[in-house]
């Protein structure tokens, strides 16, 4: 049975930091910063999620950690090594599935084989891993097809499977589930979880909140090149609550300024995200917010058509955190 083998063995504590970033900045044009003073630690054996909108800086951060881009300033170590001056040593111990597709002009099987050769995996082991990955990632029906002829989801599966051909200590996945259907996405996330159980550290970028909730031990929310929240999923939810989420829909044609008036009457910490007749309210004082809402609707003669109070999801945390000035 194929087992991914971490190169650095397991005598270290589980909480040992394998990536340490302090005030890391990167500018592509010398004027604006794609990364603007980022600091964090990634611990051995965890799944660390980078969550953010498109263009937030997630991919740049991955590129900096994987030695593809030099940080403009700041201090960064990966596996205790300096990626700028010891890039080769870092790359020898990491695996990277990039956001953009990348293939050789050959079959699926050929791509796995060639990649194994590039990483210096001995022949017997290479064949064993290839066959195991073809089975695990359900590539048997397409193993003879040329990679460029595959669908988007199939290509993604091949790309992730290909990276598993070699040993590593940290696996960087830049939005690996883009283009996958629901079942395949869940299977991929489960296979990543299995590797984590074997001691692999995973750094995972996504803008899919369900995925982050399902897979990640800790999450850094990144926006405009800054980390604006960093904690476990449970703590993030707690941090942005005891807030609860109130979903409200008013009758069509009601007072157009209803939600802005509501915002003015609520506590400063509460947030109101309105879209047409519906809005999502985040508030730590649910009782007071509901009371204000009902009073205002009465004053304005606005009919409430839907009202729901629920616990925060990660999506609420994400929307709330990137909405605040930082």
């Amino acid at each position: 049975m194929y087992q991914l083998q971490p190169i650095g063995q397991t005598s270290e504590k589980v909480s040992e930091a394998v990536v340490v970033a302090q005030d890391v900045r990167h500018s592509y044009d010398g004027k604006s910063f794609a990364l603007d003073g980022v600091g964090f630690e990634i611990r051995k054996g965890e799944v660390f999620g980078l969550l953010g909108k498109n263009g937030a800086g997630k991919s740049t951060l991955i590129k900096v950690m994987t030695t593809l881009v030099r940080p403009t300033s700041g201090k960064l170590t990966v596996l205790g090594l300096d990626p700028v001056h010891e890039g080769q040593k870092v790359r020898d111990r990491i695996g990277v599935v990039q956001q953009a597709e990348s293939f050789d002009f050959t079959s699926v099987q050929g791509n796995l084989d060639v990649y194994g050769i590039l990483w210096g995996v001995p022949k017997g082991e290479r064949v064993r891993r290839r066959e195991d990955l073809i089975k695990r990632f359900d590539l048997e029906p397409i193993r003879k097809q040329r990679s460029f002829d595959l669908s988007g989801g199939q290509k993604r599966r091949v790309q992730v499977a290909r990276e598993m051909m070699h040993d590593m200590d940290i696996l960087f996945l830049d939005e690996p589930t883009v283009g996958l259907d629901v079942i395949m996405r869940r299977e991929l996330l489960d296979s990543i979880r299995n590797e984590v159980r074997r001691g692999l550290t995973v750094v995972f970028t996504t803008h899919n909140l369900e995925e982050a909730d399902y897979l990640c031990d800790r999450i850094a929310v990144i926006d405009k090149g800054k980390i604006i929240a960093l904690d476990t999923v449970a703590n993030l939810k707690r941090l942005y609550g005891g807030k609860k989420t109130i979903e409200v829909t008013v009758a069509a044609g009601s007072s157009p300024n209803f939600y802005s008036k509501l915002k003015e009457k609520l506590e400063p910490e509460a947030s109101v995200k309105a879209e047409g007749a519906s809005a999502v309210l985040l508030s730590s004082d649910t009782k007071q917010t509901l009371q204000t809402l009902l009073e205002l609707s009465k004053e304005e003669g606005v009919q409430l058509e839907w009202l729901n109070v629920r616990q925060n999801t990660l999506e609420d945390v994400f929307i709330d955190s990137i909405s605040r000035p930082h």
Binding site: L68, D92, V96, A100, S102, F103, W119
Partner: peptide, 18 residues
């Protein structure tokens, strides 16, 4: 050209090669 166009240059350069 092909490696730049089809992403393999970036992939190889995050692999064990300078």
């Amino acid at each position: 050209w092909a490696d730049r166009r089809w992403g393999m240059l970036a992939q190889l350069l995050v692999g064990p090669f300078t």
